[in-house]
Design a protein around this nucleic acid. Structure first.
Lengths: 405, 405
DNA sequence: CCTCTTAATCTAAGTCGTGAAGTAAGGAGG
DNA sequence: CCTCCTTACTTCACGACTTAGATTAAGAGG
């Protein structure tokens, strides 16, 4: 993103305008000028370019205060299309979005075997992508790329999206180049950790919207995290940042985690650990997963002491971990999601907020709000599709690219 | 830092060149062009401007491979001057730097009373600044500003350096506007937390140099931290980020901290806690501070079991805390300093590295190196002076500023 | 003295954003 | 229907910028 020539300047302004349009959906030229800090003349130029490229259109007008009506500007939804894939525990979901991030199609494939490996991913993912593309031949011309939300650490060199490598340590896979996970002829492929894509989705369109400094935590079987600093996702040196589940919080003591260590956050408040604790109170075997957790929450709401104890304990640990994060990153917003979080927290949000405030330092501790994720679990694919969208937004205008080639 | 007009463009290129010059001290035009990704012509233009402004000078030439000699470019050290202040536990140190960050002068004033408050700071700081300025009347014309490294959270609105407020919760002070801490007529004042300024110093000229993602931890009486992500210090929503000392690592258990909570990192590995543990083993009362710690380290190196145990325990806890940080931010480098760190770690660095690797996840855990701070304790003022330096670098050329006024 | 090599600068051309001036588009009043 | 007014947007002349390529600077070797 180095700006050096006057041409880069134009491209950067184009990016600014396009980004603002994607975020607001619809505006006017004057508003755009104010939001992007550009002169009206520049906005006219850039917008004309965008209209030329079929990315933006005028949709009627709004009466002004006594003068010429204000033209309403909107994205031309069909101007670009993105594919996003959620490679999850049970299968792979591929979704097709237009420029307004409307979901046009979805294809889900369960893994053929219980615990899939790179080979199964390759097959199912390729098939799902092909199926969606076959159903929508009209978008081929405007298809920007395919984003993958993957389970595990996705490592890449700075700025080299391609040549990324997936390390799914907890699934026991060998390091796998992302290129081996999918063959999508003619498509640029982007990849990131699923929690990161979800955090980006919340940042663009969800509960973290507008917050330059936020923390998005996902509570499920595992514990995921995306940290946003200064409007950007923290990726670290090689994109492995945001691994929160194995934060040691019990100092040598505490339950044993799947990773072999003791005192990991996940070993306290991962879904399995929560239910295990409930079981240990003598509750009748409630199984695993969503139903069991629902039963726990219902029992707690019904006033059952054992269940209340388990939930309280979970909130305690979560609050400590969040408070540590608050002290460290001074966020403006904490966003909580994941299926466990979305089941457990709606009724306890204020309680949790209170605990986190109490456990963090006075200053950073008084500056955040706690929100729940806007999107239920299936926004990993949406977030993944935001990677090609970002690339599209950052790209110089279509014609020039064509001319360069 | 929004670039919108062509003028901003020039200024940004100027900034790039100047920054590179400050970092490298001396270069040539061609190297500059490569480093800044600018064309030779642009570099010539910008450099001419800088020479005009008295900030850069040609200092002889290097023979080239058979052709015209290459002109050596260097900063004109006298082109600008900065003041940095370290407001610490024992007193205030004010230092004067030139553009090459040579320290030209230093003035230290102890607090008149044991625990100073805002009023004493105002007096001592003002006197020290005045003394240094009086001794160097020749720098007045090129004095850019005064940077303060303060003990406590410095809060400010995004981009509003002025109007910052100091919250020194642990010193028991009421929130104090930075403007009330110093009167420095005619000087622009910048302020930040001391740990942050030190981290910035290490980032510019010390052990974290060249690392875009790093973590700088300071071990002393308290525990400080500066996190660098993507080449920039993480400040959080209001600049309160990086509070690491009160990270709860003992989950409800653990020693009681000065802040009232239990299990804080500082309560394990703060200087006081370390020495307290040693005392608990029956060691003869060794006092407090540097001498006591030195005695502990010496005893450990001499093979005294109790001392070894205390040091090992300290490293254990530190390793856990660092591993958590590694998982979270995936740094390329960990830099350790503070007087405790600098006494304790030189002989145990590899040991600590090993422990952190073992406790962190495989991927982020295999990508960092551990370094010790280059600057002994007194680099807070240097780091503080980097704030005005940064402002100077980011500023458009002198004449235009004069013209605008 | 000439030629060769490399470094730095200059020149012409092209691009960009801006502010001022001009145009478009509606409403109000006659 | 016409004129005038208001507001929204566009055009244009201008200055500032970068760049590619030509030119000059400065030494080495023959």
């Amino acid at each position: 993103m180095t700006v050096a020539t006057t041409r880069d300047l134009r491209q950067q302004n184009r990016t600014k305008v396009l980004r603002t349009l994607v975020l607001s959906g619809e505006t006017t030229r004057a508003t755009l000028a104010a939001d992007c800090e550009l002169s009206p003349a520049t906005v006219t130029n850039v917008v004309n370019e965008l209209i030329d490229d079929g990315v933006v259109e005028e949709i009627g007008s709004v009466p002004s205060e006594g003068g010429r009506p204000i033209a309403r500007l909107a994205l031309r939804a069909a101007g670009a299309h993105m594919l996003g894939a959620d490679v999850g525990e049970r299968g792979v979901a591929v979704e097709l979005f237009d420029l307004s991030m409307n979901r046009l199609d979805r294809e889900f494939r369960e893994w053929p075997v219980s615990m899939a490996g790179p080979a199964e991913i390759h097959e199912s993912l390729g098939a799902a992508v092909a199926a969606v593309r076959a159903r929508h031949p009209e978008v081929e011309a405007t298809l920007v790329g395919l984003g993958l939300g993957l389970p595990g650490v996705v490592e890449r060199d700075h700025e080299h999206w391609q040549e990324a490598t997936l390390y799914a340590q907890n699934l026991g896979w060998a390091p796998t180049p992302v290129g081996d996970l999918v063959s999508a002829p003619g498509l640029e492929v982007f990849a990131d950790n699923g929690a990161n894509t979800l955090a980006v989705a919340e940042m663009w369109f969800g509960a973290a919207r507008g917050a330059d400094d936020a923390v998005v935590a996902l509570l499920g079987r595992g514990i995921g995290l995306g940290v946003i600093c200064g409007g950007q996702l923290v990726r670290g040196a090689l994109g492995a940042a945001g691994e929160w589940g194995h934060t040691k919080i019990g100092l040598g003591a505490g339950p044993t985690c799947g990773c072999g260590a003791t005192g990991c956050l996940e070993a306290y408040i991962g879904a399995h650990a929560i239910l295990e604790r409930w079981r240990a109170t003598g509750a009748q075997e409630p199984g695993e997963g969503w139903r069991a957790l629902s039963a726990l929450v219902a029992a707690a709401e019904a006033g059952e002491p054992a269940a209340i104890g388990v939930v309280d304990e979970t909130l305690d640990v979560l609050a400590v971990a969040l408070a540590n994060l608050v002290n460290l990153t001074n966020p403006e917003r904490i966003v909580l999601g994941g299926w466990v979080g979305l089941r457990l927290l709606p009724t306890r949000r204020d309680d949790l907020t209170e605990r986190v405030r109490r456990l963090s330092l006075h200053r950073p501790g008084s500056q955040f709000t706690v929100e729940l994720c806007r999107f239920e679990g299936d926004s990993v694919a949406l977030g993944a599709a935001l990677m090609p969208l970002q690339a599209f937004i950052d790209r110089p205008r279509v014609r020039e690219r064509a001319a360069v080639r």
